[in-house]
Each structure stands twice: as C-alpha cells, then as structure tokens.
C-alpha cells in the first residue's frame, strides 16, 4: 500500500517537472581531480546536495562523485575508463589537464557517453565545455574601478600562481581593461599564489617602492593578505577587489561598518558543478545544447555583502547552487 502511494507520488513529481521522465533511468558520474582546498570542498558539497535531491525526486537514477587522490591526469584517465566500463550515461568532469585526458574522453564519447567538462575544461571536441570567461572576470574589475574612481590612479596587481593558464587569462583581462582606461596605470605586479600569506609577503616587499596606490586588482584568495600588508606599512587602505573568500568578506564588512569602506568582490561559485550536472541532464533529455557554454560570475557588491556573508560558512567561499531553470537559461543564452 505504502509502495503504491510512493510510486504514485513519484509519478506525480515526474509529471510536475516536464521532461523529467526521460532521464529518470540515466546515471551520471562526477570525475573530479582534486579536493584539497576550501573551494573544491564547497564544490563537492554542492554536488552532493543538488544531485542528491535530483535522485530523490527521480530526475536521474544516480549521480555519483569520484575524486582522484593525486591530482594527476593519468590517474583521472584510468578513473574515466572505469566509469565507461561501469556503464554511466554521462560523465561530468573537472579535469586535471585540458589535453591529457583527451584519449579517455574520446573513448567515452565513442561508447555513446555524454561528457561535460567544467572549471578545468578539456579540448576534445566531442565533449561539452562549461567554461569560465576568466578574461572577462579580470576586465570586470576595471569596469568597477572606472565608476568607483573616475579620475583613475595607480594600480597594484596581485597575480596568481605563475604558469597556470587561469593566472594568464585573468591578468590579460585586467591589462585589457587598463588599456581601455588610460586613467589607470599598473604601478607594480606581484605573484600571490592565490594564498593570503604569500600575497601579504609579496605586497609588503614591493610596497615601499610604489607611489600612492589607488586600488589593488586581484585574482581571489589574496585580498585579505594585501589589506594586512597595507596596514603593516602604515599606508592608507586602497580599494582592494576581493575574491569571495569568507575572511575577505568579513574584513570588508568590518571596514564598511567602521569607515564606510567600499569595494566589490568577484569569483566563480563552487556550485558550478551543479550547473554542469543540469547541463548533462538536459543533453541526456535530448535537448539541443551548444558545445561551449559560459558560467556566470558570482559578484558581491556593497548592498549584497551582508546577505552573502551570512550564507558563507566560516573559512569557506561564497556559493550559489544552480537549478535546472538556470541551466536552461545558460543554454539558451549560448545559442
């Protein structure tokens, strides 16, 4: 009896969400290359939360997450081959390398499996890419500064880890923005490795040789360290663009309450894994989805600071989880 009611309600749920029924027997796997920082931890949590609900609702049959231990392409390629053997219908992948997994990805495509890569994307043409426009993210910082300080000024650029393509892309966006706004000049540039303490040390080292700095352009995970370095040098605090980390938002809130400090914060929400999940679900559902999709940034401004700080866990990163409707919107926008 209970069983019949359960099945009836499941059937109702399927009816309510149109198009759900087609993927209810499909199984999706997440292949993840790394879990060792707060961003990745939040990414996995979002996946578990959203896909767990989707499985309960009968949208898909399974959505299992697998993380490799060593962050190595060979290990991840073997993991993907296992997923092919296990008969998953779609594989969502955050890749250790844009090229080194291509062989395994091609095998999956040839076996009729849908492959959706996100964040760490792959360039094998048969896979879908949910990519971040890091260049636009860098440029958006200058767009903000242009309105915040129309007179311009000297900028200090804090870059990420040298040799990683994300660092080059964000920096290229920042430099393109500076070129468009000749009021601004980049007075100095250091590498902060996306870590607060490294950024603090690097900024402290170059600060004495710099003129007055109007603003600091960053890549995320380095804003708090920069603020500490300015304070230690006894310099006035410039506008420091933040990167959605909880310690950065907390510092911003304290400054805002104390002296009306204004800035903005931009980064990618770890919940992008759930967007990739829904994209895979839409493809399995037979929807026509372009191969290249772009993830929206998560931007926090003066008036949304409190709300975001409240929902961000201590030591974590500001996050949003995506719904099926969000995925459909992103797909429509790419067409």
């Amino acid at each position: 009896m209970t069983r019949t009611i359960l099945m009836a309600s499941a059937a109702l749920a399927c009816l309510a969400g149109t198009g759900f029924a087609d993927t209810s027997d499909k199984r999706i796997a997440l292949s993840n290359n790394y879990a060792g920082n707060s961003w990745r931890q939040a990414m996995l949590e979002s996946w578990a939360k959203v896909t767990g609900q989707a499985v309960t609702d009968g949208v898909v049959a399974a959505a299992d997450a697998f993380t490799t231990a060593e962050n190595q392409a060979t290990e991840q390629a073997a993991q993907i081959q296992n997923m092919i053997l296990q008969g998953y219908d779609a594989i969502v992948v955050n890749a250790a390398s844009p090229t080194a997994l291509n062989g395994a990805i091609k095998e999956a495509c040839d076996a009729g499996i849908i492959v959706v890569s996100f964040d760490g994307i792959v360039d094998e043409p048969c896979a879908w890419r949910v990519a971040v426009d890091f260049e636009a993210m860098g440029k958006s910082q200058l767009d903000y500064l242009k309105t915040a300080m129309p007179d311009g000024g000297a900028l200090l650029e804090i870059r990420g880890l040298a040799g990683v393509f994300v660092d080059d892309a964000i920096s290229a966006g920042i430099h393109a923005g500076v070129e468009e706004n000749p009021n601004f000049t980049i007075a100095g540039s250091v590498h902060g490795d996306w870590a607060q303490d490294v950024a603090q040390k690097a900024v402290a080292g170059i600060l004495p040789s710099l003129p007055e700095i109007a603003a600091v352009v960053t890549q995320g995970g380095d804003g708090y360290g920069a603020a500490q370095a300015f304070a230690a040098a006894g310099r006035p605090t410039p506008i420091i663009i933040m990167g959605n980390r909880q310690d950065e938002l907390k510092w911003w809130k304290e400054q805002k309450d104390a002296n009306g400090y204004t800035t903005m914060s931009v980064s990618i929400a770890p919940g992008v894994s759930t967007l990739a999940f829904w994209v895979a679900q839409q493809i399995l559902d037979g929807k026509d989805v372009p191969k290249d999709l772009t993830v929206p940034f998560l931007r926090i401004d003066q008036d949304t600071l409190e709300a975001n700080l409240e929902t961000t866990p201590e030591g974590g990163v500001a996050n949003v989880e995506y719904s099926q409707e969000d995925a459909i919107q992103v797909i429509e926008a790419a067409k």
């Binding site: 040390k201 402290a204 080292g205 600060l207 004495p208 040789s209």
Partner: peptide, 21 residues
C-alpha cells in the same frame, strides 16, 4: 639595487619590511 630604482625614497619602508619577514 632596489633603492636605486626608487631614488632612495623607499629605504625606510623596505628595510622595515625586510627585517620583519
């Protein structure tokens, strides 16, 4: 060599930062 670029303006701040780290 570092002070040379900044024409001596930074000597105090640089020394202090160097001693700290």
């Amino acid at each position: 060599a570092t002070i040379w670029v900044t024409k001596g303006a930074a000597s105090g701040g640089l020394t202090e930062a160097a001693l700290t780290f």
